[in-house]
Design a binder for these strands. Structure first.
Lengths: 239, 239
DNA sequence: AAATTCATTTGTTTCAGATCAAATTACTGA
DNA sequence: TCAGTAATTTGATCTGAAACAAATGAATTT
């Protein structure tokens, strides 16, 4: 029996064939916060470093995380943003290929890799997660390889508006209603820049430009009110 | 029973619980070439288009393919290069998120998606493929987001040299022996440019520069002799 | 082998985004 | 509330890669 409508692995907890493992974790930096099969992180805590041994998977129950890679000279590329329901900790070889860091306070559900590989249901679920991440990575590859700064920032903003800009985008809700949404970035300008393959100055300039054009309002540093969602969407390079 | 050392899905053929399906395929452009569970493509044949319904998986038995995405104005980003043993045709939703095109003559092994999702062994194998592809995508994300043109082309050349430049890189084989290799690109300058997020002119200029520096020799357009593998590796930005 | 077509290389100019620098604004903790 | 610090914005300049243009070279056809 494989559920195709399952949207979170943690929903399975307690009913799936888990063998409640009690061993003590030795996770760097966050060890003291671990309790049972849940784990909490503060903003900017590192969950694991690139090169660490990969032994468990995590599901983001609350908060936002990022995966990034560093070049030896310090250049950083954020390769993935993880939000509620997303999984991380996958590894092909025995070691993580990215560093995982919390962007906000985070609550995680922890799974032993062994649990996953012995349960076909889990296996199937993980598979769907991977496919979904793969699709987002493909899209991000286009952004990094071919889009202008304006297109990158617009695409990023659209990614924060649920059910808009994507394949099933229906356009504005209702005729005449304001096409508007306030989004939480949960990232500094530097983190956004490292995600979009830009500099902090360029990100800032594009945001200022969108502000000047009346498409967004910056409420707090971390919170942007999009005044015209369709207007931003038109700037993503995908229309 | 799950084999961890399996390196090609097609090796399973005949012994795995496949139900030899005989239905007629209606694959655009390549239909006439299909025979049984094998499929052949000529260079530049399209196997499937972005948006096509995803119903089967493919394993590259011979040749090289690419996955790419197009923006409405024609900009193209090649998101993945597939070589012998690689799988393609995965989809999260019911439709392909990329177009798949042959770079050379290609021989494929075809699998019905249904076959995969009902076999735990297959499921497990596909999982490892996805993880491996994910890791390569992460690395490519760094290339596109943070590397210079010289670093991109050097990284690309190194990716064509087996067992070098990666994690387990041992350096040159033996002291004093020439650190040399001839690689087949299997891609035009345009395709390389679209993979590396550059223009054709920039790719050409970097190749000329490497030639002038004595690090490579261009034998045929498609074949490059690397005179100093370590020298190229030093230019990838990863040392 | 010559003719045609297509791909690649090389030269020149332009420009988007990086870099460098400074001012401004937002947060933090006493 | 007010320093003090960190993050962001804005300005000026520089530069690497894009865009444009033309020449060269390779592959294919006749």
């Amino acid at each position: 029996m494989v559920s195709a409508t399952l949207t979170k692995l943690s929903d399975l907890d307690g009913q799936a064939p888990f063998n409640g493992c009690q061993e003590n974790f030795r996770q760097p930096e966050v060890m003291e916060k671990h309790l049972g099969r849940k784990q909490r992180l503060s903003a900017h805590d590192v969950l694991f470093y690139e090169g660490d041994k990969a032994e468990r998977l995590y599901e983001v129950v609350r908060g936002v995380m990022m995966l990034y890679k560093l070049l030896p000279d310090g250049r950083r590329q954020v390769v993935y943003i993880l939000r509620e329901g997303d999984m991380l900790g996958f590894s092909n070889r025995d070691f993580f290929d990215c560093t995982a860091e919390a962007l906000t306070e985070v609550e995680l559900q922890v799974f032993e890799s062994r649990e996953i590989s012995t349960s076909p249901m889990m296996q199937h679920y993980v598979n769907r997660c991977l496919l979904s991440q793969m699709e987002i990575l493909h899209e991000h590859t286009v952004l990094l390889g071919r889009k202008s700064a304006l297109e990158r920032v617009s695409t990023f903003l659209m990614s924060l508006v649920p059910n808009r800009g994507g394949h099933g985008c229906t356009g504005p809700n209702e005729e005449g209603k304001p096409d508007t949404k306030t989004v939480a970035l949960s990232m500094t300008r530097q983190e956004i820049a490292d995600y979009l393959g830009l500099t902090i100055e360029t990100v800032s300039r594009v945001i200022s430009q969108l502000k000047r054009r009346g498409l967004i309002k910056v409420e707090k540093q971390d919170s942007i009110h999009i005044t015209n969602i369709c207007g931003i969407c038109q700037l993503t390079g995908m229309h």
